[in-house]
């Protein structure tokens, strides 16, 4: 049974990581009712940030964490004011956001090819100490454990923000009833802009660890990751950022178990899971209906 145990624990590491991958997309959807199709591209940018910090500066990729959090939070605020309030004035912001952020995704990808080239890149896993880590009689790469730990810390911080700060409570208030938040006197745009910043900063944070979790990075990786994130948040339930944790862990477990026991089917499995959930419980496992369509 040790192979099974190995897969389950590996699934947990990957699951926590995938929760971090998806949480930003869900936060932005929950607050603004827009789908950020460029989500995976922000993750890709975060990945290249870590790559260059390691290869050009020779620093440990962990240094990318504080740097990228500041950069992407700072990027998120003006980007919000540039794009989102205009979108929300339209009759169907959700649909329009698909098109607009798909365009943004293509632009980022094209610029990334210019800037970084088309080659696959990676960071040696030995940066977190060469020795693998022994847990419960199993051996795991240290990079998996570090990635999962950082993801867990990131998610806990987002939880603390949402449930124990004034702006975070206001964020949840906007998620539950936007119009009520406006008449309550909450600065809806300011609070949403911060949520947008947190959304893409969490993607960049996940990006820092993507060279280890996905093996390699390339400018075109974004779209696939956006789709993966979408699967995760639909499993957990759209509009409920903490449901993403459940979605991420289920996704990670499913992926690892499939890769271990039914390797050739594993590529397909997440999508089968998505279809099953949409058929059986379309609102997601933790969800109630948050959208009419």
């Amino acid at each position: 049974m040790s192979l099974f145990e190995y897969a389950v624990l590996a699934g947990l590491f990957y699951g926590l990581y995938f929760a971090l991958v998806g949480v930003g997309l869900n936060l932005i959807f929950g607050v603004m009712r827009i789908i950020n199709l460029a989500h995976g591209d922000f993750l890709m940018l975060g990945a290249y940030g870590a790559f260059y910090i390691y290869h050009l500066l020779g620093w440990n990729p962990l240094w990318a964490i504080p740097i990228e959090l500041v950069v992407f939070l700072g990027l998120g605020l003006p980007l919000y004011y540039l794009l989102v309030p205009r979108l929300q004035k339209s009759g169907d912001p959700e649909m329009l956001s698909f098109i607009l952020f798909f365009g943004l995704s293509q632009v980022i990808e094209a610029l990334a090819v210019f800037a970084f080239g088309n080659d696959q890149r990676s960071i040696p896993t030995s940066v977190f100490g060469g020795a693998p880590i022994h847990i419960a009689g199993q051996i795991y790469p240290s990079s998996w454990v570090v990635s999962a730990a950082v993801a867990l810390i990131g998610i806990v911080l987002i939880y603390l923000y949402l449930y124990h700060t004034r702006a975070g409570r206001a964020t949840r208030a906007i998620m539950t009833e936007r119009s009520e938040a406006v008449v309550t006197g909450i600065s809806v745009h300011r609070v949403s802009a911060v949520a947008f910043g947190i959304g893409i900063a969490s993607a960049a944070l996940a990006g820092i660890f993507s060279p280890f979790m996905f093996g390699a990075i390339e400018p075109s990786m974004g779209l696939g990751i956006t789709v993966t994130s979408f699967v995760i948040i639909v499993i957990g339930s759209l509009g409920n950022p903490l449901g993403t944790v459940l979605g991420g862990i289920l996704y990670g477990e499913a992926l690892m178990l499939m890769q271990t026991f039914l390797t050739s089917w594993s590529e397909m499995f997440p999508y089968v899971l998505l279809i099953l959930i949409l058929l059986v419980k379309p609102s997601g496992l933790l969800g109630k209906a948050v959208r009419s369509a």
Partner: peptide, 29 residues
């Protein structure tokens, strides 16, 4: 709107509350 609220006008809509927030958090909002 938010500045009108801050200057001393409170509004209670038909809904009036945030259903997904607990009571204490509603008051905080």
């Amino acid at each position: 709107t938010e500045k009108r609220v801050r200057s001393g006008i409170a509004f209670m809509s038909e809904l009036g509350v945030f259903p997904d927030l607990n009571l204490a958090d509603n008051l905080r909002m």
